[in-house]
Nucleic acid binder design. Structure first.
Lengths: 382, 382
DNA sequence: CTGTTAGCGCATTCAC
DNA sequence: GTGAATGCGCTAACAG
């Protein structure tokens, strides 16, 4: 952080704001906000009449309405959201809450970006606010991730991130009757409102594909240990083996985090055993470099002495050139559909939770191969 | 949207929620929220005492405090944010407002992602909420982009996107005394609080670099027409020409949007004139494909019969292999520093607006060239 | 068509 | 140490 005086550098544009910042409004609040009574006084009517205009209620003469509307515009008056939220429940703000700290769910994940686009398209376009609760998980009750909802800062929420197996918060949200949507299923709450790809199916598909290619000892880099999404991966893996009558070696399934070293180490240990001839990378990282790195340490290389199936959340993505197949999890597509339903719930165009489940798709890695469009398995929308 | 009955597909996981979603809380609000008086009654104290505990105020015996704390935890009570916001001004929510509709500022821009990371690091970690106002710009008063602030939904804001030349809203925000930070300067408000790279300097650097390589007719793909950021690009361009004693041909400066066709067309028209031997691409798109496309239509190719300088917001980025140089605008670095100052303002650790300006850096395109670290030109921080 | 009253949940002021 | 009263800005229910 250099000082203001750093003008000697070449090309300084000659603008020195250091001296200009002076007469800024001091301490005491700056301009006070207006209230309906300010407008009412100026318009010579009662507060309630202004309220009626604001809320497009009938019972105001066109002339009065026009006068008030004009005043509102002139003063740039906007009603105090806090005061409004204390009377009936308005639904003009969605919360986005995160179930896990950033070590577990990297905020830099691509998902943030498209999530944002979808939220904009669906909520922003309807004039709603979007409030992110980036919960500080160090706090004592970090496990309750829905502060924004309990504080009635927003009237419903999207639950982003994997659900902890023994999640309590989501039960409470469900019970509260507020509109919400999780991005995962949860065993302990079968009636949960969610939009998600079918992770179990993806694990099953991945494993079966490798079995069909003749592999019998298949490793798995399994993300989300301790979360429902991890359980589902495990189930799909086991189901494929059972169906094929192959033995289950638990050591082949390695729980990994988003940490590159962790993934490299897990891969390394898996591949030191040369009987392991294939790996399903369902770490959710969508980055294959650590896997390749781990393999190299074990003296092995993907596509040469072992085969890999990699998961991806983006259609058409090729996470690892040497992979024999990719499994595409249409998370984004599921979320988009879910959000469209959620906003209806917000706006009381629907009453009930919904469930949207999308089928993952396996595609063999080949340049220019045509890829399928996302397939919803089911949803509860009529 | 397929129906629930779509179970016939292979690999359906056997879980049919359609039948399970039933006994969901109906209409009438679900569980009511608690108030301090609920806690007070259960603890056998008055509301004020609970309030004291909530706000860590003195004047409560340790025993009473413990009893109340326990109740709060058990019931998962959280104070109503709306009610709180009606008494003194709390500062627990930053707004992020957008100055322009998504046609002008694509929401899919990379910036959203790192913006999010920074906001998380700096505001989220302090337990603050982050409220995006994705203003529906179709609405009549779309030009007032700070709804979130006027509604007192949040107590300060980050102004994202380019500032319109005749921006009124930012004046009002400045005047209100609320903490805020723009990501651009503004001629009409020299004392504006901002964090930004120096766009004028970047335009100057780009143009001068090309002049020094012998070019005399240099085209510019200029983003942000009608916005301050566009004006600054123009100024830097003009300054470089003047300094070199070269004539100014206004037709060489083409205002472009983020639309690929637009950029391709502008490039095409620039290059049809074979006396144009260089282009500065400061469209802000960070994508060079449309430029190459436009050139191709004009029968020309970058690096062969004309030279290009491309702007980028990411260090190390090579937007176009054939570019002779890149100009890096340390927008992210400026924003990070600005946000750190803004949060201090929020927390009353500082009183005044600040100004952070970062110097752009030109680097010639070469593999493995070492790149410089960002250089602040000035800020008002001690 | 318009106004009055009351109260949402909390924090401030002052009293005990 | 604690509690009662008051009011923040708004709107639902009721009067006129």
């Amino acid at each position: 952080m250099t000082d203001i005086g750093d003008k000697s550098q070449r090309g300084f544009s000659g603008f020195n704001p250091g001296t200009e910042v002076r007469s800024h409004v001091k301490g005491s609040a700056g301009m006070a906000h207006h209230t309906i009574y300010d407008i009412a006084r100026l318009a010579g009517v009662s507060g309630k009449t202004v309220s009626r205009v604001l809320n497009q209620e009938p019972g105001v003469s066109p002339l009065t309405r026009a006068r008030i509307t004009k005043l509102i515009d002139q003063l740039g008056y906007q009603p105090h959201s806090g005061a409004r939220s204390m009377r009936g429940q308005r639904r003009d703000c969605v919360g986005v809450v995160f179930t896990a700290p950033p070590e577990v769910v990297p905020i830099s994940n691509q998902q943030i970006q498209w999530m944002f686009e979808e939220l904009y398209r669906i909520f922003g376009m309807r004039g709603k606010f979007i409030c992110f609760d980036l919960n500080p998980f160090e706090s004592p009750d970090g496990s309750d991730y829905a502060r924004a909802l309990w504080q009635q800062r927003c009237s419903g929420c999207v639950i982003h991130g994997p659900l902890p197996i023994h999640d309590q918060t989501v039960h409470r949200i469900h019970q509260s009757g507020s509109p919400y949507m999780a991005m995962n299923r949860l065993d302990s709450l079968p009636e949960i409102c969610f939009a998600s790809p079918d992770y179990e199916e993806a694990a099953y598909l991945s494993t079966k594909f490798l079995i069909d290619r003749g592999h019998t000892r298949i490793g798995m880099l399994k993300g989300w240990e301790g979360y429902q999404a991890g359980v589902e991966r495990w189930r799909g893996y086991v189901r494929a083996l059972e169906e094929a009558g192959l033995p289950l070696d638990e050591a082949l399934v390695r729980a990994v985090t988003f940490d590159a070293h962790d993934i490299a180490a897990a891969t390394h240990r898996l591949l030191l055993d040369f009987s392991t001839t294939a790996i399903v990378d369902c770490s959710s990282t969508e980055k294959a470099a650590p896997l390749v790195e781990g393999a190299r340490f074990a003296g092995r290389a993907p596509g040469k002495d072992f085969e890999v199936v990699v998961w991806t959340y983006a259609a058409q993505a090729t996470v690892l050139k040497e992979a024999c197949a990719h499994v595409w999890l249409p998370l984004r597509e599921a979320a988009a559909e879910g959000l469209a339903l959620l906003v209806q719930w917000f706006d009381k165009e629907r009453e009930e939770p919904f469930q949207v489940l999308y089928r993952p798709t396996l595609y063999e890695t080949a340049p220019d191969a045509a890829l399928p469009t996302p397939t919803p398995i089911f949803n509860t929308l009529r």
